[in-house]
Simulated assay, not measured.
Amino acid sequence: MDKCIRQISEENEKKILSPLACLSSQSKGRLREETECDIRTAFQRDRDRIIHSQSFRRLKHKTQVFLAPSGDHYRTRLTHTLEVSQIARTIARALQLNEDLTEAIALGHDLGHTPFGHAGERALAQLSPNGFKHYEQSVRVVDILEKDGKGLNLTDEVRNGILCHTIGEDAYTLEGQIIRIADKIAYINHDIDDAIRAGVMNEEDIPLDIRMGLGMTKSERINNMVLNVIANTDDKKILMSDDFWELFNDLHDFMFVAVYKNPVCKGEEVKAVAMLEQIYEHYSKRPEEMPEQYVGIAEKEGVDRAVCDYIAGMSDNYSVKVFNQLYVPKFWIE
C-alpha cells in the first residue's frame, strides 16, 4: 500500500531534523486516542486546531501592554503571539528542530490570558482563593474549555510547552524551551516599539551600554538575540550567553521603570481591575447568570473556578460590555 502524505512527512523529519528534535511520529500522544490524519502530522494538526479555536480569535481584542490605544499599530495579544511564533520558528529552523511543534506551542502559549494583560491576571490571582496563572489557564483552555467542554485534545508535547513557557520547570522538549526565550525576545522589543509610538520613551533613552551590547535598533536587537541563542544552545537547553542574558535583564529593568510602571501606559489599569473585580463579585454571588457552559463548571468544579474561566476568556471589549450590562443603566450607554 502506498504511504500517506503524513507518513512521508514523518519520514522526512527523521532524515532532515537534528537527533535532538522531537519527531511527530514519536509523540507521547493525546489525552484521548484518535485516528491519525492522512495528511498532517500530529503537531501540524495541533497547530491547525489552535488557529481555528475561538480562544485564538479572541486574542485580537486582548491587551498586550497599552489599554485601548488610539492607533491601529499597537500590539495586541494576537500580534504578540504571531511575533513569538515567527521568532521561535526562525530559531527552530536554524537548530534543525521541529518547526511544526514549535509553531503549535507558540500559537497556543497565551490562549488563557486574561483581558487587560497582566493587570487582569494579577486581579484574578488576588480575587481567586486558588490563585490564577495564565499559563496554567492556557492548558485548561486547550484541555477543557474549547469546543464547549470537549477541548482540543492536543499532544502532550504541545501541552507541556504551553505550560512551561513562562517560569518554573523547563519544557521537556527543546522546541518547548524555544518558546520561553522567543516570548521574551518578542515582548521586550515590541514593547519598546509601542512605547516609542506612544511617546513614552525614545530609543536613545535606553542606556547606551545596553544598546551597544544588544543592538541599536529593534531589528538589530532581535537579530542579535536570535543569533546568540542559536550560537549558545547546547543539547540540553535553549539559552543565551551569560553576557547577553545579563544585558537582557538590564533592559527589562529599564523597561519596568520607563514603561511597565509608567502612568501613561498603566494609568487606566486601576479602572480595568476595578471592573473585573465587580464582574467577579457579581457572578460569584449569581453563578446561574453565566453562560450555560460555565454554570456546568460551577456545579462540577466550584463557583470560583467557573467565574475565573469565564472572565479569563473575555476579550477587553466583551468584559466592558458585560460590566455595562451589569452595572450601568441601559439608557446611559445607548
Rank of each mutant, 00 (worst) to 15 (best):
Arg197Lys: 13
Leu145Ala: 11
Asp205Asn: 11
Asp205Cys: 12
Ala198His: 04
Lys237Cys: 11
Phe132Gly: 00
Ala123Trp: 05
Lys133Pro: 02
Arg140Asp: 12
Leu163His: 04
Asp235Pro: 09
Gly149Asp: 09
Asp243Ile: 10
Val158Gly: 02
Ser128Ala: 14
Leu227Trp: 08
Ala171Lys: 01
Glu204Val: 08
Gly149Leu: 09
Asp242Ala: 14
Glu203Asn: 13
Thr166Ser: 13
Ala125Val: 06
Ile179Tyr: 02
Val226Trp: 01
Tyr172Gly: 05
Glu204Pro: 01
Met240Phe: 14
Ala198Lys: 03
Gln137Cys: 12
Lys147Ala: 13
Met201Pro: 01
Pro207Asn: 10
Asn224Ala: 09
Asn224Phe: 09
Ser241Pro: 05
Ser241His: 06
Leu208Val: 13
Ala198Gly: 12
Ile188Thr: 08
Glu220Arg: 10
Leu152Pro: 01
Asn223Val: 09
Gly151Gln: 04
Leu247Pro: 04
Arg122Asn: 13
Met201Ile: 15
Asn130Gln: 13
Asp205Ser: 14
Ser219Met: 06
Asp183Thr: 11
Gly215Tyr: 08
Gly151Arg: 03
Glu136His: 14
Arg221Glu: 05
Ala171Glu: 00
Asn130Thr: 10
Gly161Tyr: 00
Ile185Val: 14
Phe132Cys: 02
Ile196Ser: 02
Leu174Arg: 04
His118Asp: 06
Arg197Asp: 09
Gly161Cys: 06
Ile222Lys: 08
Asp234Val: 08
